[in-house]
């Protein structure tokens, strides 16, 4: 961890109106939860629907995308990354710091709101809120690492990230069950299931599959991002 890199990343992420955007989405989720609870009372099916589809299925990948790519791709696009890289700092340290900031961001703006939405919708009953909260936390970390890698590896990080999250996880995952094995969202759900009381949350991927995959993807993406950053090339601007 490098405090200077962390400071620059946080200010870059939360400044420039992006901070407001990051806040708007979770606030909408919480408002919706309050409305749903007020009109339907404590309803298990509705709670699972809102938390699974809106929180874990939308808010978490969206925040992971904004935080993961935003933590580095803006600097690479505008060239200011030069000031970080023309320094005797190990590249993995820069990546790990930026990942920590992105994970912190998804925790505050996605995992915590998911947990709170769970509490609003379903109280502490059956460990539903805690399950989805933890699932969101872990999925958020994995999304951050994956999208941070995309931010280093491609200039079209947001597009590629959206394609993964929308097309692969949502669309393909909906129709082809096998595709869910390779879905961060499903791994998070698997963890949520394990934490909540038995039978409360359904998940397609078993825990012994989900946990190793989560670890491998998170660590692998981080390591690969560090390697890519060490060989970052500035094309001639002439």
């Amino acid at each position: 961890m490098n405090p200077t890199v962390a400071r620059l990343t946080v200010r870059g992420l939360l400044g420039r109106r992006r901070g407001v955007l990051l806040l708007v989405v979770p606030v909408l989720l919480l408002l919706l939860s309050v409305l749903v609870r007020a009109s339907n009372g404590q309803d298990h099916d509705i709670a699972v629907d809102v938390l699974g589809t809106l929180a874990l299925g939308t808010l978490v990948p969206l925040l992971g995308l904004i935080a993961g790519t935003g933590a580095i791709s803006t600097e690479i696009d505008d060239g200011s990354i030069v000031y970080l890289l023309a320094k005797p700092q190990p590249r993995w340290k820069i990546i790990v710091t930026k990942l920590a900031v992105a994970v912190g961001c998804t925790t505050v703006f996605a995992a915590l709101p998911t947990f709170l939405a769970g509490l609003i919708l379903y109280g502490t009953t059956d460990g539903l809120a805690a399950g989805y909260g933890l699932g969101a936390l872990v999925a958020g970390a994995a999304y951050s690492a994956l999208f941070l890698l995309l931010g280093v590896a491609t200039r079209h990080a947001v597009v590629v990230g959206l394609m993964y999250s929308l097309i692969w996880e949502s669309l393909v995952g909906n129709f082809v069950h096998g595709a869910r094995t390779l879905s961060i969202q499903q791994w998070g759900l698997s963890l949520a299931k394990a934490v909540a009381d038995p039978g409360v949350i359904a998940a397609d991927v078993s825990l012994p599959v989900a946990v190793p995959l989560l670890v491998v993807v998170t660590l692998g993406a981080t390591a690969f991002a560090a390697v890519r950053l060490a060989g970052l090339t500035l094309a001639g601007e002439e």
Binding site: T4, R7, R11, G79, S80, Y83, L84
Partner: peptide
């Protein structure tokens, strides 16, 4: 980079920082 100082052609340099904060950040990164 302990021995090299680089002045790139591009202008973007963390526009949200003041000149002092920017130079200080560079010193810290070194």
């Amino acid at each position: 980079y302990r021995q090299i100082g680089l002045v790139p052609e591009r202008e973007s340099m963390y526009d949200f920082l003041t000149g002092w904060q920017f130079v200080l950040a560079n010193a810290e990164l070194h």
